[in-house]
Design a protein around this nucleic acid. Structure first.
Lengths: 347, 347
DNA sequence: CCCGGGGCAGAAAGCGCTTACTATGGGAGA
DNA sequence: TCTCCCATAGTAAGCGCTTTCTGCCCCGGG
């Protein structure tokens, strides 16, 4: 039925081994023979059988990409960059984990099953010992299998020693810069709508925020910090709800920081509905600098993360196309982007 | 090194065949035996070898998803919905074609090579005979291989007869409704920033637009239609440039329709820069109703396409989990969403 | 003129699984 | 009590490729 290597070999009057060698190109084949084989491939319209080749070679050309949800531009941009970097040699298997550790583990198992060449795990990790252990075990198993694992936007500490690369985001730094910007504008009471409490990204961004406050003697006690902080998912709705809650708790605040741009947009929407002018009465800032942030009104002050470059690098590391530093970790810098949503508070 | 079926079989004191049958579950196995096998699998931490199983069974559990670019929410949403619908049985291989027919064909070949269980091809097709033929050939080959092909947002006519399902978008209808809305508001000179000229989606949306104009005697001759239409990619920049061009050609226009939301946002940006009030002086409308459209200022009047539902259905059809109508085509309706960016023109 | 070696090509042994096809053992019907 | 048959389990033949090990042939050096 289907054309196989053997058919091509027969037509080219060579052995199957030779055809295989011509196609994978890692063995000397005389020019004339190669041409004959290529011609046969062409004439028969031969398409190599991936599974068979993966079985024999003990590795496939699949690269897993774990994301919370590709529909979220934050992840979509990274997934896209990884995919593009793979070229047409490798295929990207995109898995939506929805941020669930269980699903993450499930997908890692599926990728293990596929003998994936590499896996890029994006997004923050959940910070519980059980999950850390389970995750480390899976990653270790993948590595043992020859699958290169790369963490993208997740601390290297979330993985077992060695054999794993990490491209980390300057979340702490970015969070600090953003809040310093607000402080330098004159803000003193700053609300924060954070992400889910047990995520590395949430913690890092929040730590940066608080470090900036502390550096300016604005931290207050834990109680006050707590009062000015609410947690929720990284969604617009969370920002909306969070802003209302914060306004309720602390009517005097002059700025609210969102854990990401979607949250910030939700905050803006809530303020708008309450008739609070942004940035006239309350400044708002986000994080990530996703494309839509520039078109929002007011345009969002935020922290830019070079997602595309970072993801492309992660892909190259995954494919072994780029040397990694000795400790296997890169830190990608976060850059403050000031736009119209932040301004000095009213006197 | 790695644990294989045989190891599990030995430990469970059964034959490899029995283990295979327990795992794939399509053959009667006595309860006691099954339990023993499952226990062995668990104890040995066995993970089945995907390629080997795909080779033997002549089908893999990969489902291809072709998109222009997953980073674009329009495609990201569909890819996400497909992926989610697959559950944890099948894996989604996401391929960015960048809208290029060549890359589309390349990826189809790669998916053929992988013996993919199904392929969902999203986005508009290029309307040239050569491409149509090449594409049809590839799709035919996939179908012959047992790969179910589903077109999502692309007319069924873009594929060979039978063996292919299509979930089509009501682009023509949506385009018509949108323009009728503008006409009913009183607009008479309406500009249109269309997509690339040779795409099915572009053509359908434009046809809908012109049908509405014609129905109200506003079409004018071909020259006039041409003067009020510019083509470009489906990007924000295209909208920006297009709006400037249209304004230049026809200062008297009171509304501009974008081929999608990103284009519409670009149009808004251009008008804003020119000091033209939206919708006061010129109304603007988009297409797709992507999430950011509601947060733009002014919030965009647009046409909603139920991307998620459509993609989920495409996935179900791909997996054979949903019966398809006799002709294999579904049409998903487009719904007009009126928001702040459109209003009656100045008297 | 003979021998050694390098450059290519072939033979064949798997890779780990699926799935006909073939046993086997007892219970049901005669 | 003897068949017959169903429910299970096992046997073994691949699936289509990669790759190690061999072997052949021809060239250059001695």
């Amino acid at each position: 039925m289907a054309v196989t290597l053997a058919d091509v070999a027969a037509r080219a009057r060579v052995s199957a081994a030779t055809v295989s060698r011509v196609l994978s190109g890692n063995y000397p084949v005389a020019e004339a023979t190669r041409a004959r084989v290529l011609a046969a491939v062409d004439e028969l319209d031969y398409v190599i059988n991936g599974p068979a080749s993966a079985l024999a070679a003990a590795t496939s050309d699949l690269v897993g990409v774990l994301v919370n949800d590709v529909a979220d531009p934050f992840f979509g941009i990274m997934a896209s960059a990884v995919q593009s970097e793979l070229g047409s040699e490798k295929l990207a298997v995109v898995c939506n984990t929805g941020g669930s550790p269980e699903r993450e583990l499930t997908y890692l198992t599926l990728l293990l099953r596929q003998r994936a060449a590499a896996v890029v795990i994006t997004g923050s990790a959940v910070e519980t010992p059980e999950y850390a252990a389970a995750s480390a075990a899976k990653v270790g198993r993948l590595a043992a299998n020859g699958t290169q694992v790369v963490l993208l936007g997740r601390p290297a500490s979330a993985a077992p020693e060695g054999s794993v690369f990490a491209v980390e985001f300057g979340n702490r730094e970015g969070g600090r810069r953003l809040t310093e910007h607000l402080i330098s504008l004159g803000h003193r009471r700053i609300g924060y709508v954070a992400g889910p409490a047990d995520r590395t990204t949430t913690r890092h961004r929040l730590e940066g925020h608080r470090a900036a406050l502390a550096a300016h003697g604005l931290g207050g006690d834990a109680g006050e910090l707590g009062r000015l902080t609410v947690h929720g998912p990284y969604t617009r709705k969370s920002g909306y709800d969070g802003a209302l809650e914060l306004l309720d708790r602390e009517p005097g605040l002059t700025a609210v920081v969102g854990s990401n741009d979607a949250v910030a947009l939700g905050i803006c929407a809530a303020l708008r509905e309450k008739g609070v002018d942004v940035p006239g009465e309350v400044s708002v800032a986000g994080f990530d600098d996703l494309p839509f942030s520039a078109d929002a009104t007011p345009a969002l002050t935020t922290v830019r993360l070079p997602l595309q470059e970072a993801a492309a690098r992660a892909a190259r590391l995954a494919l072994g196309r780029e040397e990694s530093p000795a400790d296997g970790r890169y830190m990608v810098p976060a850059e403050l982007v000031t736009r119209a949503s932040t301004a000095a508070p009213r006197a």
